[in-house]
Design a protein around this nucleic acid. Structure first.
Lengths: 200, 200
DNA sequence: TCAATATAGTTTCGAAACGCTACTATCAAA
DNA sequence: TTTGATAGTAGCGTTTCGAAACTATATTGA
């Protein structure tokens, strides 16, 4: 019975913090897009990946992204390897206004927690999210460090630390290891996933 | 920097769990209304109180509530003490479908936590919400047990446990003590609040 | 090689949600 | 009694969103 109260608390907190009114001219949905493209790695900065992450349709995602491109917050470039795909990157204009993200109130509140509490809090949130995602069948995004596809090729193949993704057969840079990825697979994974996000 | 990840996690979890698609014919917003009127005490089951709680306008709240009344999920009765006010109560039809609330996945995930972890989790969530609410100036709803207006009149005034609200000068029943209230005031409160929720 | 199928992205359309403003009715206070 | 605040509703236009249709490119398999 107490669990229901907690669940409602999470929803309420998320709602309050997502900035109901529009801040700096952006809607909550548009902020969500900017946040996503800030955190996603280069394999995941596509409309489809965002749609999968955000639990919406590609059509809706396409519309929202288009408006941000038109406003100069996102830059769109064609993929060189796949003619159908586009990659989206934040512009300087976007990076400049991210400090006004209405989520910052929540960030500050979280930051005010004692480190130990914050760590446990984060751990519990991830655990709950993993469970919800499992039950609802929604895709789970994660970072390389917990990913089943992550390969640490010993060390120093050619003088550089050589990490790689065994799924995409791509080398990985250090700074990419903590970015979100569509192709994330839990270490204790079930059936192997096929490339693409599979949202129709 | 980690705090931002946590903040995004909360938003994401709330979004995933609030049932993006419509479950049982109800939209996420309509589920939010049913949830609210399940948890709110008799002083708080009004359109204005819900609007304040949910961070929206009275106009928007009124519309959404109207549709739920029309569908037979809420019953509307005039207040006897205030001719302007109406009180809304869940119908049996509403109580019957609450088990289908898309939030249940999150409830189950939370319930799967070890009791100690769940307690700490709940405590941290409340703490963070309190901080966010403080910073954004949004109203905080709470229950009698932590409320500055709560009065425990010793014991057994006339054979019954006698609780009361010092703000409304109303006696309180046992089962009302854990319901949400618009007039909640933190124990460590600042300036006294005036009756009403003050959302224009 | 070529047809069938899957995927990436966009567009269009209709429905719903939302905020704003204006309005009525009631209450409270000067 | 008059003035101002509050509760609730209605109308309007904007925005959002999902479903479906559509184009273009990849991939698969006969």
């Amino acid at each position: 019975m107490d669990s229901r109260v907690i669940a409602e608390l999470i929803l309420h907190l998320g709602r309050i913090a997502s900035g109901d009114g529009l801040v700096a001219g952006l809607t909550p949905g548009q902020w969500a897009i900017l946040r996503y493209f800030t955190r996603a790695n280069r394999f995941s900065r596509t409309p489809s990946a965002f749609a999968a992450f955000h639990g919406t349709t590609r059509g809706t995602a396409s519309q929202a992204i288009k408006s941000l491109v038109a406003q100069g917050f996102l830059m769109q470039t064609q993929s060189e390897t796949d003619g159908r795909s586009v990659r989206l990157d934040l512009t300087d204009k976007a990076r400049a206004i991210i400090a006004n993200d209405p989520i910052e109130a929540l960030v500050r509140a979280t930051d005010a927690l004692p480190p130990g509490v914050r760590g446990a809090f984060s751990h519990t949130l991830q655990r709950v999210l993993g469970q919800v995602v499992l039950e609802t069948g929604k895709p789970l995004f994660g970072t390389c460090e917990n990913c089943a596809h992550f390969e640490d090729d010993g060390c120093c193949k050619d003088g550089l630390a050589a990490y790689g993704c065994g799924f995409l057969n791509e080398p990985l840079m250090d700074e990419e290891l903590d970015q979100l990825c569509v192709n994330f697979a839990s270490d204790r994974s079930g059936p192997p996933r096929t490339p693409g996000v599979g949202v129709t």
